[in-house]
Amino acid sequence: MVPLSWYMVLSMVVFAIGVFGFLSRKNVIIMFISIELMLNAVNINLISLSHYLQDMRGQILAFFVIAVAAAEAVIGLAIIIALFRNKATVHVDEVKEMQG
C-alpha cells in the first residue's frame, strides 16, 4: 500500500513543475500545458484524499476539474490560434497590448 504522503509529495512536485513552467516558459503552448499540469496535480490530491477519507465527493470534484480543464483547453487553444493568426507568434513576451 502506497502511503498518502507519497501521493501528496507527487502532487506537490507536479504542481511546482506546473508553476515553474508557467512562469518561466515563453511559449504559450508550454504555458498552457503547465496549467494542465497544475490542474492534474490538484486532481491527484483530490483522488488520493478521497480514497484516504473514504469520501466520494473528492472524486466527483476531480471529474468536475477534468471537465472544466477540457473546456478551458478548448477556449485556450482557440485563443492561441487567434493570437497566432493575428501576431504570427506564440511567444508571450511579444504580446503586451495591455502594458500600462
Binding site: L23, K26, V92, Q99
Partner: peptide, 17 residues
C-alpha cells in the same frame, strides 16, 4: 505605479504566486 503593469501575463503570474 502603472509601470508595474507590463502587459506580460507571466509577470502577473509571478505576482500572484
Amino acid at each position: 505605479l502603472r509601470k508595474i503593469q507590463t502587459g506580460l501575463a507571466q509577470h502577473y503570474g509571478i505576482f500572484m504566486a
